[in-house]
């Protein structure tokens, strides 16, 4: 197989890994091990926003792939499948066409359907509101607010604004709808509802992954992730804060 084709396979799998939110060391390790199983030494440098893979080609020239990864979501199943794929490559040779086909299949792997994920988001809010010692009524309110947030966030995402705008709007919805709910039935605790319903937005997992990257020695990506988490938290917090400030003056 040509070196170029191997590089294509490696960069395609690295791209899928990175856009599914895999850790940096995993992306580097997978790209290297794929190249290695075809008998090629490569160097790669991965950041959360993109990566480069480089190696020496057939005629002693340098081959380099640079790829920018724009939308990053959390998709553990894809990471799992790519992992299994690179394990498989270690033991058996897979031809270029077959490998690309497998990777394309993984890339198109079905998500859970939107209603399912909406309801899941609702239940997350429900359970966390209860865990934060909210009452049953609070939890039910959080359930519906969270479903609404998830739906709206998904819609904005498909229109394709920049990422932080989604979080800002979602935060405003969380704050606004909780205030309305509080207005209708004053027994509800606003704080508990808001915390529960923004649980799907807040960047807890990114913060933890950022620190994990730092512990593995990937300092640049660690700070990028922490920065992303900080900006998301700011977007959500400012969104909620604006609505709460409105309520103080105008309600």
């Amino acid at each position: 197989m040509q070196t170029k084709q191997v590089m294509e396979i490696a960069s395609l799998s690295a791209e899928i890994l990175l856009s599914s939110g895999a850790e940096i060391y995993r992306v580097e390790y997978t790209a290297k091990s794929i190249c290695k199983s075809y008998g090629i030494e490569c160097e790669c440098f991965v950041m959360p926003t993109g990566f480069t893979i480089s190696c020496t080609g057939d005629k002693n020239e340098t081959l380099t792939y640079v790829k920018r990864v724009e939308n990053r979501t959390m998709d553990l199943h894809k990471i799992d499948s790519i992992n299994a794929f690179s394990r498989r490559l270690e033991n058996e040779k897979i031809g270029y066409e077959d490998a690309v086909k497998i990777l394309k299949d993984i890339e198109k792997m079905p998500y859970f359907k939107l209603p399912t994920r909406c309801i899941a988001a609702g239940f997350i809010a429900f359970s966390f509101t209860m865990l934060f010692r909210g009452t049953l009524k609070d939890s039910i309110a959080a359930f519906f607010i969270s479903m609404l947030i998830f739906k709206v966030k998904n819609d904005i995402e498909s229109i394709g604004f920049f990422q932080f705008f989604e979080y800002f709007i979602s935060g405003m919805i969380a704050g606004g709808v909780s205030l309305i709910a509080h207005k209708i039935s004053p027994a509800l605790n606003i704080d508990k509802i808001i915390i529960g319903s923004i649980m799907i937005l807040v960047p807890g997992v990114s913060i933890t992954n950022g620190i994990k990257d730092a512990l593995y020695g990937d300092l640049i990506s660690s700070f990028t992730r922490l920065g992303e988490a900080l900006f998301i938290a700011i977007a959500v917090g400012v969104g909620v804060g604006i609505m709460l400030t409105f309520s103080v003056y105008w309600m």
């Binding site: 959390m74 998709d75 553990l76 199943h77 894809k78 799992d80 998500y111 859970f112 399912t116 994920r117 309801i119 899941a120 988001a121 239940f123 997350i124 429900f126 359970s127 966390f128 865990l131 649980m199 799907i200």
Partner: peptide, 12 residues
């Protein structure tokens, strides 16, 4: 319940 639904969102 929280983790189960988190799993759905993270698509495992």
């Amino acid at each position: 319940l929280g983790s189960f639904c988190g799993g759905i969102i993270f698509n495992i």
